[in-house]
C-alpha cells in the first residue's frame, strides 16, 4: 500500500522504479493522478467506501422502509410488503404524541444546553485561577462524572431521587412546608409522576455529566489567551464581568460554537437517561428518542414508522446544523 502511494506524494519523489513490467504502468498512473490532482480523492476513497457501507447503505434502506409497511408480519411472510407512499409520514405528523415528545426534546435542549455551558464555563474559569494541585483535584473529580457510564449514572440518580429511601425525598420530607410546599415528598416519585419532575431529574444528571467536558475545553481555550490582554484590561479598570465579555468570550467564540453544536446534538438526543428514568411505559414523558424507539422497536415493531421518523429526525438535525453553519459564516469564523 505504502509503496503504491509513494509515487503520488509529490514531484520530488525519485522515480527509479523496480524491475518488471509494472514500473512503466505505475509511472503512467502516477502521472495521470498528478495531472488531474486526484491524490486527495484517492486517499479519501477507503474512508468513503467505509462510510458508504455502514452509513449510506443503511440510510438508503431506511428511506425505502419509510415508504413501505415493513414490520414483523412482512419479515415472517404472514403479510406482503406494500408501498404505502407518505402514509408513515402523515401518521407521524398527525400523532399528538410526536409533537409532545418533540416539544419535550426541544425544551430540554433549550434549558439544558445553556445551563451546561454556563456551569462548564464557570468551572473552567475557576480551574484557570486555581493553583496546580487544586486544579488537578477539581478537574479529576469533574472528569470522573464525565467518565461515568450513562447507565450507571442514571441508576445512581434514580436511586437518589427514589421515594423508596432516596436521599432527596428523605431530605425534602424533613424540610418545613413553607420552604418546600405541601407535597408529600416522602412518597414523591420523580421518575414516573410526570414529564416535569422526570426531566428535572434528567437535566441535573445530564448537566452533571456533561459540564466537565465544557470546563476542560474552555480551560484549554483560556490557556491560549495571552496573559497581557487580561492584564491590560485590568489596568484599564475593567470589571471581571466586562473582561470576560469583552476579552475572553470574543477570543473563545470559535470554541463556544463547537461546544454549542455538540451540546445541542447531545442534549437533543438523550436516550439512555430518559429510557432508564422516564421509561418506555410513561408515554407523557417521551422525548423524541424514546418516541422513535417506541414506534420502531416496541412490540409489534414497525420499521417503516421508525424509518420515517429517522428521516424526520435527520431533517431536524440538518436544520439545526444549517442554522449553525450560517451563524458561523456570518460571524466570520470561516475566513
Amino acid at each position: 500500500m505504502a509503496d503504491a502511494i509513494q509515487p503520488l506524494a509529490g514531484p520530488r519523489q525519485s522515480q527509479q522504479g523496480g524491475p518488471g513490467g509494472w514500473t512503466p504502468m505505475r509511472t503512467r498512473l502516477g502521472a495521470f493522478v498528478r495531472r488531474h490532482k486526484l491524490a486527495p480523492y484517492l486517499l479519501l476513497l477507503p474512508a468513503l467506501a467505509g462510510i458508504a457501507l455502514v452509513l449510506l447503505w443503511p440510510l438508503i434502506q431506511v428511506a425505502i422502509y419509510s415508504f413501505q409497511n415493513y414490520g414483523l408480519p412482512q419479515i415472517t411472510g404472514a403479510l406482503p410488503t406494500q408501498w404505502v407512499g407518505f402514509a408513515n409520514f402523515s401518521t407521524t405528523l398527525h400523532d399528538p404524541l410526536f409533537w409532545l415528545s418533540l416539544r419535550i426534546s426541544v425544551l430540554f435542549a433549550v434549558v439544558v444546553v445553556p445551563l451546561t455551558l454556563i456551569v462548564g464555563t464557570v468551572v473552567g474559569l475557576m480551574l484557570n485561577r486555581l493553583g496546580r494541585k487544586m486544579s488537578i483535584f477539581v478537574s479529576t473529580a469533574a472528569l470522573l462524572a464525565w467518565a461515568t457510564p450513562p447507565v450507571s449514572a442514571s441508576v445512581l440518580f434514580y436511586w437518589i431521587f427514589s421515594p423508596d429511601g432516596g436521599l432527596v425525598d428523605w431530605a425534602l420530607s424533613r424540610m418545613p412546608h413553607w420552604l418546600v410546599g405541601s407535597t408529600d415528598w416522602a412518597q414523591y416519585n420523580w421518575a414516573t409522576t410526570g414529564a416535569l419532575p422526570a426531566y428535572t431529574l434528567i437535566a441535573l444528571l445530564v448537566i452533571w455529566q456533561s459540564f466537565p467536558f465544557i470546563a476542560v475545553t474552555v480551560l484549554a481555550g483560556l490557556k491560549t489567551i495571552p496573559a497581557e490582554l487580561n492584564e491590560a484590561a485590568r489596568v484599564d479598570g475593567a470589571s471581571p464581568w466586562r473582561i470576560y465579555w469583552r476579552v475572553t468570550f470574543p477570543l473563545l467564540k470559535p470554541i463556544y460554537l463547537v461546544l454549542l453544536l455538540l451540546s445541542v446534538i447531545w442534549d437533543f438526543n438523550i436516550f439512555t437517561q430518559s429510557d432508564i428514568i422516564a421509561s418506555l411505559s410513561n408515554l407523557n414523558e417521551y422525548n423524541l428518542s424514546l418516541y422513535i424507539y417506541d414506534k420502531a422497536f416496541t412490540f409489534p415493531p414497525s420499521y417503516s414508522l421508525g424509518g420515517a421518523l429517522a428521516l424526520i429526525f435527520a431533517v431536524i438535525l440538518l436544520v439545526i446544523t444549517f442554522g449553525y453553519v450560517r451563524a458561523w459564516i456570518r460571524q466570520g469564523a470561516l475566513q
Binding site: 462510510i51 452509513l55 443503511p58 440510510l59 434502506q61 431506511v62 422502509y65 419479515i75 463547537v258 453544536l261 446534538i265 438526543n269 428518542s289 422513535i292 420502531a296 422497536f297 420499521y303 421508525g306 424509518g307 421518523l309 429517522a310 428521516l311 429526525f313 435527520a314 438535525l317 440538518l318 439545526i320 446544523t321 449553525y324 453553519v325 458561523w328
Partner: peptide
C-alpha cells in the same frame, strides 16, 4: 468541522434505525 457536523447528523439518523436488518 461543519462537514463533520453534517456527517454527525446523518450518523445519528442512521443510528436511530440501526438494527433493522433484512
Amino acid at each position: 468541522r461543519s462537514a463533520a457536523a453534517v456527517g454527525l447528523a446523518a450518523a445519528l439518523a442512521g443510528a436511530a434505525v440501526a438494527g433493522c436488518g433484512s
